[in-house]
Design a protein around this nucleic acid. Sequence first.
RNA 1: GGUCCCGUAUUUCAAUGGAUAGAAUUUGAGAUUCCGAUUCUCAAGAUGUAGGUUCGAUUCCUACCGGGACUACCA
Length: 592
Amino acid sequence: MNLDLSLRSEIKNAVTALFNQSIDQLQIQPTNAEFEGSHTLVCFPLAKISKKGPEETARLIGDHLVAHGNLVSKFNVVKGFLNLTLTDTTWLDLFVSIYNDKNFGALPSNGKEIMVEYSSPNTNKPLHLGHLRNNFLGWSVAEIYKALGYTVHKVQIINDRGIHICKSMTAWQLYGNAETPESSGLKGDKLVGKYYVEFDKVYKSQIRELEEKGSSKETAEKEAPIMKLAVSMLQQWEQKDPQIVKLWRMMNGWVYAGFDVTYKRMGVNFEKLYYESETYLLGKEEVLRGLEQGVFFRKDDGSVWVDLTGDGLDQKVLLRADGTSVYMTQDIGTAILRFRDFPKIEKQVYTVGNEQEYHFKVLFLILSKLGYAWAKECFHLSYGMVDLPSGKMKSREGTVVDADDLMQEMAEDAEKQSRELGKLDEMTEQESKDLFEMIGLGALKFFLLKVDPRKRMLFDPEESIQLQGHTGPFIQYTHARICSILRKAKDQGVTAAVEKLPALEPAERNVIAVIYQYQSKLQEAAREYSPAAIANYAYDLAKEYNQFYQSIPILNEMDAVKQKFRVALSFVVASVLKKSMHLLGIGVPERM
RNA sequence: GGUCCCGUAUUUCAAUGGAUAGAAUUUGAGAUUCCGAUUCUCAAGAUGUAGGUUCGAUUCCUACCGGGACUACCA
């Protein structure tokens, strides 16, 4: 049953009957809590059609709906707002249709495919807080599209090539003493990151030395011995020097093993990984093809450029004078390769920080100029930085929040707070451990996802995680409590069922109304590429249920029909909470 | 300089052009014969400035003020 459509159609019929005109656009919104009713028709725009004042128009429509329609039982008019109260039968029918729909909110496959890229880290340092926002966001958007019937391919591009990884390799060769993850006890990504930092330290001191000897800053940066080593290593890598390639394979392998541990804990996964080392050559071919077709041009020094001044942008280099690729070249290759690998995808979503907005604008334009029609379907899911109270995270200043550390702290914090409440008596060690993990990560994910992705946000690591209020654990707790009620109902022999009811309580109607919003929130989240819509919805539903729970006894009532109905209602709320939280990658426990 | 994003309670976040701008947090006051007190109720408290569009603006437009990002033959 589609309540919105039915209501709209009744109103449209009323307008036609009353004013002899048809109308396409109707403004219907939820009624404010202070007035009676659930749906409100905004009648100001209709005043033109009715040629009467907004209030008069509202009254006429209201009268007509009550007299001739099946949905509305009564109405009131406040200024130009027509507040409609629906019949209990309407609410019950709606609830029954939701209750019987096992896949409520999820749409059947629509045969369409899309690709979502997220994470895409460099392989020279560990993942941090910013990557957490990225991963949770990308994973969640992918799940939201899945729920809407799309086949979604989750991928990432690994930036495994270039000077940055050579820096770690150089420092490890010089100072590593053959240290490995096994020998050091460090996670692979942490170990490689350690040598990246080491490189930077040595590099800086060498620059200082050279400057003291009278070199200019530019010369010093180029002439620092350790940098020269790294550059020559990059050249050797490009020439496929077996020793260097072997070292590169080994150290990247360490990083991947370390990342895998982190991804597993985050709960994200990828269908396919792309490596820059494998895609940059295709990008180069494409650029040369574009050059032949006159899309690009060559400068005197041999470098290849694209001129986007006609599109309000600048000129951009695509191949260096020495013929090597830049970042853009690789992304061109990667995009094309992906459409070859998955010919049915109709769009690509790139989850990448907003500092790269310009880059993606350019990329999509270039792809379009190269003649790829799908270029206009590519979307940069751009998100803001996560700031610390001290300001921006800077790896060079050591003010990054490490992803592994943070997840660990969240789980420990959840443990500490749960133990203080002392409610873990009948759980095994493993069960409570899983629970702390679920709560800690739930708090973290909810915190990062409830904010509009485009906005930069603030994270304070000093403040311990909130378990109450507008948080993930609040919703998890509500779910656990509903499960407890359902268990108790079972013990008492009360089964869920929706039979004929004399009347509904306002709190019951409110809960049904919120449940029903789920599908439109899902659409909204997909349209906006924003899990925030889902996060805030799940919170609303939990809160609405808590109010219902507080105001109405669910089991302690004589009327058996009511009892069964409330158990059914609780059951549906729990299942919708679970579904929405799943879209955020957050698990909900059955007891906590 | 140019392009883009963001300015909402003490703080962190909401609000398809709609009604008295919502939550959480903080502070203060209260509820619970319990189906689980990580709950619920009440109170205090905000749209950077100046114009414009209109029945109606946090939202759209213009200017200014404030914060940020980008504007590399780095990735």
